[in-house]
Amino acid sequence: MNSHLRKDLERLKLQIMKVAIGVEENVRKSVEALRELSVKKAEEVIEADLEIDKLEVDTEEECLKILALHQPVASDLRFVITVLKINNELEHIGDMAANIAKRVIFLRDAPPAKIPFDIEKMSKQTLSMLKSAIDAFVRYDELKAIKVCEDDEDVDDENRQCYANVKSIISANPDCAMAQINYLLVSKSFERIADLCTNIAEDIIYMKHSVIIRHNLKNAEQKLSGSSLEEAGDWD
């Protein structure tokens, strides 16, 4: 039993959970800031993102240390590689929350405008994907991960709809172009968060089954059924 490696892997899991919790919290707060057009909350989001950036670097260093010192293989290797990738994706999600916050600060000062997308619906879908992706990681739950990949389509549709709405609103009333562009950027940020959640979900499927399903979700289930799942690893 290599207890040094076990301890380091445990610590790494706690570390990546810190990043995940921080990011989820920040996305949630950016949604509140958007809903209330609260500059105070938006500024808190931007401030907290700096902390997430630091955690991301710490986590990456921990991964590199484990790779260099223990040269993990098999399920341990896949775990460290997955953490390395998820860490990066979570940090990007954090950046998206900060982007939304920056748009909020702009929109707060702009004249009131028609909102080109359903904030409640889109933020709920995106947050639910983020929560599911993190849960899927904690529980090594590939079914949940596959569901996250499938849900991405809904957020993409919302973003496309937003784009069409923004186009017609600006055509009808060019004066509100700036506000509309900012709303479109917000919608795009949600869409990016959903994409990154999909990447996390794909990483989790790789971690559990060593199958790379990226770029081809349709074949994922077929590929997964070909890999021996039950005895493939110890996931405690």
């Binding site: 039993m1 290599n2 490696l5 993990p72 293989v73 098999a74 399920s75 341990d76 290797l77 896949r78 060593s210 890999s227 021996s228 005895e231 493939a232 690893g233 110890d234």
Partner: peptide, 19 residues
């Protein structure tokens, strides 16, 4: 394959130092 994706749990446990 053995060092990235062993199919057998015993192999995985051995090469990852679990026993």
């Amino acid at each position: 394959q053995i060092f990235t994706n062993p199919k057998n749990k015993a192999t995985n446990d051995y090469i990852t130092g679990r026993f």
